[in-house]
Design a protein around this nucleic acid. Structure first.
Lengths: 235, 235
DNA sequence: AAAATAGTGTCTATTAGACAATATGTC
DNA sequence: GACATATTGTCTAATAGACACTATTTT
């Protein structure tokens, strides 16, 4: 009977909308220990290691709090990757979470930075372990839920315009979305109490002012629409 | 620096359609060791314990193979539950999978049996650890995917009738479904090559014979429809 | 007034759902 | 033929998507 030697960790794929841009960024943290010390990687912690955790969920929150002093707008477990090869220390297992952050989310220190998700997925930024895979899976889940739920709205500032919402949906989905369809979805959300018209306006440099909305979730899970945004895209 | 003592296991929520009935059953295995020896529980194994595993997925397949000598039609990781309380031995973590079995799936031995999912969820059959929760989560995922995918078809025999498919969808969903809608979905699947009309017929005791179909998945993941089966039900 | 941007209204296509109509078997 | 069941067809409702139209601001 050998001892059960499995290293358990949690890693966080924390996303925000890039400031003044239309794409997603992922929060990375410079590793403080071996292996891969000094490299940019997903923030994460060993589960119930030097610091006791009461639950996996708790460990995930601790990872974000300790490494980045951040509390996300939304967090969801995506899955667990475990095998004998992903960590040079041996058999390891990482349960990873998708966290959605507000667009203005600031981070302190030299050890933290946001990187474009696409540059990670396209390997222009290389991550240690299988962290690229974890980002890819989190991104896939986000895209899949975007077509039939209100999930992308968690990435918005407290007050947002229709175009902000459109940018978020498109960034999550990785493709263009019909703006009429999105407006109708926002209108339905408003009827259901999930979105509030603040009555305030935002004046762009030119043109008609934009209505400012507020996302007011009525439950822990996003609102589910009964149709996909992308009929052809399915499958 | 304390040692990282976390017990990692995989557990399988393997479901089949009850024979001659319209509901789901879950495969349980009588525990051979402490804790909870002799009780009916989800089949599972310790990850990379006495027997080496190369991956979590591999451990999940091993669990089904070792405990039940079964190869499922479909398997999907649902999530990981981990905390300090779920196992009396201490901090433990279980990654659990949903497995879908063919309706005739036989099991050998006194140590294996199918139980109605509802009797587990309603606590008429009590499972050790948090296994009831795992069954509930797997069932939720199945129901959620049933409204917009072909997932329930993995529960069918090689050749099935429209009514078989309807029974499966309704069992997965836990509620009645319009049979016209399901027929149209099957027709679309047929056009897409995901379902084949075998040309054969099944003669019920009375009435017109039933067409026999065959599920022929065109990819590893189920076919996605672009609308929900339950417009009102959403959210 | 012109330009630019936001927001509304109208029409089409698709598909779930209700239900009537038809087909094909047993007794 | 009567009956039972399966299958097809027709109609309605809801909503995504395309696009024309109107509204509101700056210059």
């Amino acid at each position: 009977m050998s001892s059960t030697e499995v290293l358990a960790s949690v890693d966080i794929v924390a996303l925000r909308m890039a400031p003044e841009a239309q794409h997603l960024q992922v929060l990375l943290h410079r590793r403080e220990r071996e292996p891969h010390v000094g490299q940019w990687a997903l923030p994460g912690v060993i589960v119930n290691g030097r610091i006791a955790d009461t639950s996996l969920e708790g460990a995930a929150e601790r990872a974000l709090r300790e490494k980045a002093r951040i509390v996300p707008c939304y967090m969801e477990q995506i899955g667990t990757e475990g095998n004998a090869f992903r960590d040079p220390r041996g058999w390891s297992l990482s349960t990873y979470y998708l966290a959605l952050l507000a667009p203005g989310q600031a981070v302190e220190g030299e050890q933290l930075a946001f990187f474009d998700v696409d540059s990670v997925l396209e390997r222009r930024v290389l991550l240690p372990f299988d962290h690229r895979l974890l980002v890819e899976r989190a991104r896939e889940r986000l895209a899949a839920k975007t077509v039939y739920s209100s999930l992308p709205l968690y990435l918005l500032a407290e007050k947002f315009t229709v175009l902000d919402a459109l940018a978020s949906v498109q960034a999550c989905l990785g493709q263009a979305v019909n703006s009429t369809s999105l407006r109708k979805r926002l209108e339905r959300l408003r009827e259901q109490g999930w979105v509030r018209d603040t009555g305030e306006k935002n004046q762009p440099r030119l043109g008609r002012p934009q209505q400012l909305f507020q996302y007011t979730p009525q439950g822990p899970r996003p609102f589910m629409f009964d149709r996909s945004l992308l009929p052809e895209g399915g499958q």
